[in-house]
Structure formats: C-alpha cells, structure tokens
C-alpha cells in the first residue's frame, strides 16, 4: 500500500470564462516513511497538488488514496477528520494562533481531538522539548523568532503522531541558517516517528534532506534526481 497514490489528477481554475489548467493528469506516489520534495517554478501547481493531497482542495478528476483510503468518497466532515488525525501541516508563514502561547499552539490539534487540557499540555510539552523550545513554552508567536515559530509549527504538526506531513515552503520565511536547522530537526523528527512527508520548496539547499525530489512542470510531476546520501543526516 502506498502512503499516497494520486492517479491522473486534473485540476483547473476558472476565472470568469477563462479556464486555466494547473494539473493535467498528475500521477504521484509516495511510499510509507518516504520524504519527497516537490520543486518547480512558481505557478507550476506545487501548492495546488499539496492542497489536494491535504484534502483542502478537491481534484476535478482522478483518484487519490491516502494510506489506502479513497479520499474522493469522503464527506467534508470525514476529510476534516482525516486531516486532523492523519495529516500534519507545516505552512510557509507558520500560521500559529497569535493569541496563544507556544504550548497552547502545539496543543490545538489535541484539543480539537477532544483531549483534556492537562493531557494535551503534557503531550505538547514533550513536543516542544523535542524541538528544543521547552523554555519558550509560555512565549507567544510575536515574541519568538521566525525559526522558533517554525519549530513550534513543526511540533504542532507532529503532536498527534500523524502518518503524513505536508509542508509548504517550510524554509521560505527563514534565513539560511535557520532554514538548515529547521530542516535538520524536521528530518530527524519525521525519521524518528516514521512519518511520510511531502515538502514543497524552492530552496535547493535543503534538497539534501529529501529521499526523492520530484519536479513539477506543465502540470505534471517528474522524478528529478536522487539526493546525495548526506540527505539522511
């Protein structure tokens, strides 16, 4: 069973009478535990594909299975449930809740799952410790650096031990050093948990953290290269 099996995915955007095809028969498979990076020029459909994989968008046609589950057959509520239980998201701009502390932000998915406050806090504290931010548990996003915020976002994405992590340009808002640190941490944590990851990025410096790099062009996905062995560092 594939972690992700996207078969002949088509997606177009309509603006008035104009129809712009973005994905034109994408075939994309990811094995369990694999870390695949999606690269390509702006407008090539990377984020659209990631949104479809994350059940945030629906494809116009094609078949999508996440860990064997046919996503097309799911109701909106079931898709929410799938996102909450099986998929972790890391966003380009972190998307933390500004009014909440780091530990509260990490605990959000747990609380959405109905965990009690105390239990959620204990689990969130473990994750914050894992990303090296135990001392920032009470800090709000406005008081943390971009690198720290992204680490909180990574902790949030992993807190429910999802099977799949989808990351959209996770280093785009970070300087080079922070980007490397965050990706090293990200790689290490998903390896520890055996999580499958799909990362959209423009940043060639982080390709080394991928098991496989795929390039998007003309609405299609093509395997590009096998990163060097140092990717597993």
């Amino acid at each position: 069973m594939h972690a992700i099996a996207a078969i002949d995915i088509h997606k177009s955007y309509r603006r008035g009478a104009t129809v712009t095809p973005v994905l034109t028969g994408v075939d994309f498979r990811v094995e369990p535990g694999e870390s695949v990076f999606l690269v390509g020029p702006s407008g090539s459909g990377k984020s659209t594909l990631l949104s479809i994989l994350g059940c945030l968008l629906t494809a116009d046609s094609g078949r999508l299975e996440i860990f064997g589950q046919d996503v097309n057959r799911l109701t909106a509520r079931s898709r929410s449930e799938l996102r909450l239980r099986k998929i972790g998201f890391v966003f380009q701009r972190f998307n933390l809740i500004q009014g909440l502390t780091a530990i509260d932000n990490v605990a959000v998915p747990l609380r959405l799952c109905g965990w009690s406050a105390g239990r959620a806090w204990r689990r969130a504290a473990e994750l914050l410790d894992a990303v090296g931010l135990a001392d920032q548990a009470r800090a709000r996003p406005g008081c943390m650096s971009a690198g720290q915020c992204q680490r909180v976002a990574i902790a949030r994405s992993l807190v429910l031990q999802p099977e799949l992590i989808l990351a959209d340009e996770p280093t785009a808002s970070l300087d080079a050093d922070s980007g490397q640190e965050v990706m090293a941490l990200f790689r290490s944590l998903i390896r520890q948990q055996g999580v499958t990851a799909v990362v959209v990025t423009h940043d060639p410096r982080i390709f080394v953290y991928a098991d496989r790099v795929c390039e998007m062009a003309d609405g299609q996905v093509r395997s590009r290269e096998q990163p060097s062995e140092s990717g597993g560092r």
């Binding site: 929410s80 239980r85 998929i87 966003f91």
Partner: peptide, 18 residues
Amino acid sequence: DRLGEFATLKAIGAKEHQ
C-alpha cells in the same frame, strides 16, 4: 483580523461545530 487563524483551524481539522 483572525480569518487566517480560523482558516488554519479548519485546515488542521477543526469541525464546524468547534
């Protein structure tokens, strides 16, 4: 002011009743 935060909650799986 917080539409983005509500969108984030929906994206990570918050249900309508929540």
